[in-house]
């Protein structure tokens, strides 16, 4: 009897733990939505999502102006694109090499190394981008008589790509390594070379998982904060030029909340509007990566 009683107690305790985790989720959504709606009461959601200038200020009439998110979106997209151009081909090739070509002893050293590198705080990369790579790129561009802003999207994007690379290749390596071995044996038995096996059999077979790795990396790049805070600037330019300075959603959240802190200010509330958009965007990517892809998964072995 005692043991049954104890079992019930433990059961209830663990249920409370699980409920707490759900409350956290609901808490995030509710607090973000609540503050975001207070913001949208002052600035119309249409102006916010489609406005072309980002220069938040409040007029003397109390009207809030300059909350157009498009320049921030373009900036985020530009930096993320550069990061993905670096990380995706390189990360996939690294994953292929580690999974298919490297000897098992090399793999056993490099795989944990990659995972450790993926755990380096992004602050470190940001510092590197701001103090070493930015002057280097600037000098390099001057040599070819190109004007390059010291807070260029190129600089932040390159370093972010390097930051994403270990994460991306670790995920992609998992996807490739967990394919059943008879796929490789079958293909090679038919006379294909290793590269043909990889390109025509393994990559298509692992495609859903590779896609998930790509989407998770993408969501990480979009939500990345410290690198862009330190290496990209605050100037909200509406441009696709990777050589000029742009700003991102996360930079502006940090900027709006680390300044003066009146909670009833439209500027402070704007941070929650931005946070809400960021949450929806990354949520969509994560759901797509974790569940949407499953539909296309083929079962082998």
């Amino acid at each position: 009897m005692r043991s049954l009683f104890l079992e019930r107690i433990v059961h209830i305790f663990l249920l409370i733990c699980a409920l707490a985790a759900i409350i956290v989720t609901i808490g995030i959504v509710v607090s973000l939505i609540g503050e975001a709606f207070r913001f949208f009461a002052r600035v119309s959601i249409f102006d916010f999502l489609f406005g072309l200038t980002w220069a938040p200020h409040t007029l003397s009439t109390g009207e809030a102006k300059g909350f157009g998110i498009i320049p921030l979106f373009i900036g985020t997209a530009l930096i993320t694109l550069i990061a993905m151009i670096v990380a995706v081909p390189c990360g996939t090739l690294v994953a292929i090499y580690l999974s298919e070509y490297a000897s098992s002893s090399t793999r056993q050293i490099l795989k944990p190394l990659l995972e450790t590198l993926a755990g380096i705080p992004t602050l470190v990369y940001g510092f590197f981008a701001a103090t070493t790579l930015a002057p280097f790129l600037k000098n390099f561009a001057e040599f070819f008589h190109i004007s390059l802003s010291s807070e260029s999207a190129l600089n932040a994007g390159l370093v972010m790509g390097i930051m994403i690379l270990p994460y991306m290749s670790s995920l992609a390596e998992d996807a490739l390594h967990h394919l059943p071995f008879n796929l490789r044996e079958g293909s090679m038995g038919l006379g294909a070379t290793s590269s043909e096996t990889i390109l025509r059999v393994l990559l298509p077979a692992a495609f859903p998982n590779l896609m998930a790795a790509f989407l998770l990396s993408l969501s990480r790049a979009i939500g990345e904060t410290m690198i862009v805070v330190m290496a990209a600037g605050l100037s909200a330019n509406l441009t696709f030029n990777p050589l000029s300075a742009v700003t991102t959603v996360t930079v502006q959240i940090v900027n709006l909340l680390t300044g003066d802190q009146e909670f009833d200010n439209a500027k402070t509330l704007a941070a929650f509007g931005l946070g809400f958009v960021l949450f929806i965007l990354t949520l969509f990517l994560n759901i797509l990566a974790l569940y949407g892809i499953k539909r296309y998964k083929r079962i082998y072995g």
Partner: peptide, 24 residues
Amino acid sequence: WVEANINNLAAVPSILFGLLGLVF
């Protein structure tokens, strides 16, 4: 649903947890 939520939360940008901390 709970599982899906937790998996999602593990991939949410850390800056959003800061916003939650600020409000809550």
